[in-house]
């Protein structure tokens, strides 16, 4: 691990000032640290090599509050475990709670934060090991994953420069729940819809989101749940727990008078970003729920799949994941740990 200067801040302004003081530094030189579960991991691998680390754990961003519009605002430093077990979130946004509980372990969930989870880096082996070229780690160096071991990698949203998967479960649920990400920079606050927060790799896989240098995530807010809606998260993986998804689905769905009147579907484990399945939603809206409609919805999104040498199975797996999640949502079910 590269040596670094460690700073602790107690106030938001301090954090912004400190990071601004290093504004001229190259990307990655200055890092905020919250839970540390991604950053420390990657620093040990020499993938992250900051020269300044700013501890923001003492900032007052750890509240979960209801908002006037009937939604909820989750502070960036709320730990994933607290978020998962929060009674309000459990009852009104079960997909979020299930997604969080399906991810990592209880220990990691006690550390990892809402803001940090949004910034979770890919698990792509070629990104995590500096002996390989990786456009995400070293722009322009080449993608070793294409033509390599890509079983875990993306079938949706990839480019010829990067096929890395976004590994987060939380982000998939937040996408289906149409969350908004709140940011604070030295120029002030701004809010970004979760669907616009993440960048697909394109020709710049090293730019993963809209965050500007020095900008802090302060909160994530969720709109009031759609009336009568159910939500759930289904995660498929090799073992039963403590593993990243091969395919996952977050569903928010309202069925009334035998018709689907509202639906949001997002996929995990298959996309370079948390994958909002707009075409699938369109295929479902207004239809009577049936296996055939669910299959068509799955096709609508998976027709865009471009598998690699080892992950063609993810197309069929995602198909089953989507149809099973929809079937379960309509039936009013859901698995306790999302898997």
């Amino acid at each position: 691990m590269r040596a670094f200067t460690f700073k602790q801040v107690a106030r938001q302004e301090e954090a912004l000032l400190l990071s601004d003081a290093h504004a001229g530094a190259s990307p990655g030189e200055v890092r905020f640290i919250a839970g540390g579960t991604t950053l420390v991991d990657l620093m040990k691998l020499n993938v992250e090599r900051p020269s300044v680390v700013i501890d923001i754990n003492r900032l007052p961003l750890d509240k979960i509050e209801t908002t006037p519009d009937g939604g909820v605002r989750i502070g960036a430093l709320v730990r994933n475990g607290d978020c998962a077990h929060h009674p309000l979130l459990q009852s009104r946004y079960p997909a979020l709670s299930q997604a969080l509980l399906s991810g990592a372990s209880a220990q990691l969930r006690n550390m990892a934060t809402t803001g940090g989870n949004l910034l979770q880096r890919t698990r792509c082996t070629y990104f995590r090991d500096t002996v390989w070229t990786c456009n995400k780690r070293v722009p322009g160096s080449g993608c070793s994953a294409i033509g390599g071991a890509n079983r875990m990698l993306a079938i949706l949203g990839a480019s010829e420069h990067c096929i890395a998967t976004n590994p987060s479960d939380m982000n998939v649920a937040l996408t289906a729940l149409e969350a908004t990400v709140h940011l604070q920079g030295k120029e002030g606050e701004r809010s970004v819809a979760i669907d616009e927060f993440f960048h697909r790799p394109g020709t710049t896989p090293h730019i993963e989101n809209v965050l500007r240098p020095g900008e802090l995530i302060t909160a994530v807010s969720l709109p009031a749940p759609a009336p009568g809606s159910r939500s759930l998260y289904l995660k498929l993986r090799d073992r039963a727990t403590y593993e990243f998804a091969l395919a996952s689905a977050a569903v928010v769905l309202t069925a009334a008078s035998g018709r689907i009147t509202h639906v949001r579907l997002a996929l995990g484990g298959v996309g370079t970003v948390p994958w909002r399945a707009h075409e699938a939603e369109a295929a479902l809206l207004g239809k009577g729920p049936s296996p055939e409609i669910f299959r068509r919805a799955a096709e609508a999104v998976l027709q865009h799949a471009r598998p690699q040498s080892e992950n063609g199975f993810k197309v069929e797996l995602a198909r089953r994941c989507i149809t099973h999640a929809l079937t379960t949502a309509v039936a009013g079910g859901g698995e306790q740990y999302g898997s």
């Binding site: 322009g140 197309v315 069929e316």
Partner: peptide
């Protein structure tokens, strides 16, 4: 299973990427 729809598509380009010696001379 019958042939997957994607199997009839051309897959993402898999031409070998150049391995540039950016961080190791090997």
């Amino acid at each position: 299973l019958k042939k997957e729809p994607w199997q009839t598509h051309p897959t993402t380009k898999t031409k070998p990427q150049p391995h540039r010696a950016n961080d190791s001379p090997d």
